[in-house]
Amino acid sequence: MNSDLQEFADVVRAHQDAVYGLALATVRDPDDAADIAQEAFVRLWRRRDEVAAKAHRPWLMKVTRNLCLDHLRRRTRDLRRMGPHDPEALDRVPAPADPESILPDDFDRALGALSPRARSLVSLHYGQGFKLDEIAAMLGMTTGAVKVALHRARRTLRQSLAPARTLAGHGQENGS
């Protein structure tokens, strides 16, 4: 392995969980998420001389998010070919219920109630710890728009997770 690649291995190790986590939360399929995360790193490898080390993570996040949305768009196009035209299909892509998903089932289902864009925002903020203004700068949005989108996403998630939380509460009560 050449020295460039050895150095790059450290970059991959430093960011792989964040990149994969974002991809998984957005596309909700472990295999697709791994492919997308890999593609993001290969693109960084090609541009390793242009992207500064401190910009690696935001750059990877932006590329990963775009790759995820492209992937879902392609899948939506395939679905459209099979069914009637639906212009809002992208935001309601039926995410595959993958038993190998490393996200807990109830959380994965709750994520499925969000649009892919909202899922990526939730992952960037709550999963990877990016601040609102960092996300806004990364994605070319206003901080207010990110805040509103996250607020709506959190409300939807809360509603989706409420039955599971209630069941868990019952389980605890029954167990005690």
Binding site: D17, G21, P104, S123, Y126
Partner: peptide
């Protein structure tokens, strides 16, 4: 609720 997002590897 958001904890699973931080645990993903």
């Amino acid at each position: 609720d958001m904890e699973p997002l931080r645990r993903v590897k």
